[in-house]
């Protein structure tokens, strides 16, 4: 299950939805808005998503995690809109019979989400300036290409 969330969300109901007597492990990852990025003091950030394609691509990523790691289930929720420092931007939860597969799948999902999902992040800094992350350092095109991953 993947969804975009325009507002803050509770993680307990999400974890509840994964309950399964076969599961010996639940691995949860919370991505949080940090107060600094590349040396600048971040005040707020805005996530914008191309939701139709993002939904499909995220479901592909979750399916890949199932196939590769033999997990029981996985879900991910990604915020859109304006977020403040300390708020949760993304949540990933994976269940599996044993912890090893759950850790691997959790890592795979968040890494692929970061490189493949059509989501953009505009940071606003102390002093009022703002930047779309990964789109500014245009002299290093390779960095931007790398941010799209290999697929």
């Amino acid at each position: 299950m993947f969804k975009f969330a325009a507002e803050k969300f509770e993680i307990d109901p999400l974890k509840k939805s994964l309950e399964d007597d076969r599961a010996g492990a639940v691995v949860c990852f919370e991505g949080i808005v940090r107060n600094r990025n590349e040396g600048k003091a971040v005040v707020t950030l805005e996530y914008e998503a191309y939701e139709t394609l993002g939904q499909t691509e995220a479901e592909n990523i979750l399916d890949e995690a199932h196939t590769r790691f033999g997990i029981l289930d996985a879900l991910c929720v990604h915020r859109v809109g304006e977020l403040k420092v300390g708020e949760m931007a993304v949540f990933v939860a994976v269940t599996s019979a044993h912890r090893h597969e759950a850790y691997l799948a959790s890592r795979y999902i968040i890494d692929e989400i970061k490189t493949r999902l059509p989501i953009w992040k505009k940071e606003t800094y102390e002093g009022g300036s703002s930047d779309w992350v990964n789109c500014q350092h245009l002299s290093s095109a390779s960095a931007c290409e790398a941010s799209h991953g290999s697929k």
Binding site: G31, Y47, A49, Y50, L53, T56, E57, H78, A89, V90, I110, I113, K114, T115, R116, L117, P118, I119, W120, K121, W132, V133, N134, C135, C144, E145, S147, H148
Partner: peptide, 24 residues
């Protein structure tokens, strides 16, 4: 859907150019 840059254009198509992403 993600497609190749050489894909032809058809009447009524919806096109999205996708800048470097920054989710997570």
């Amino acid at each position: 859907k993600f497609v190749d840059w050489q894909e032809p254009l058809a009447e009524g198509a919806q096109v999205v150019f996708i800048p470097p992403v920054a989710g997570g």
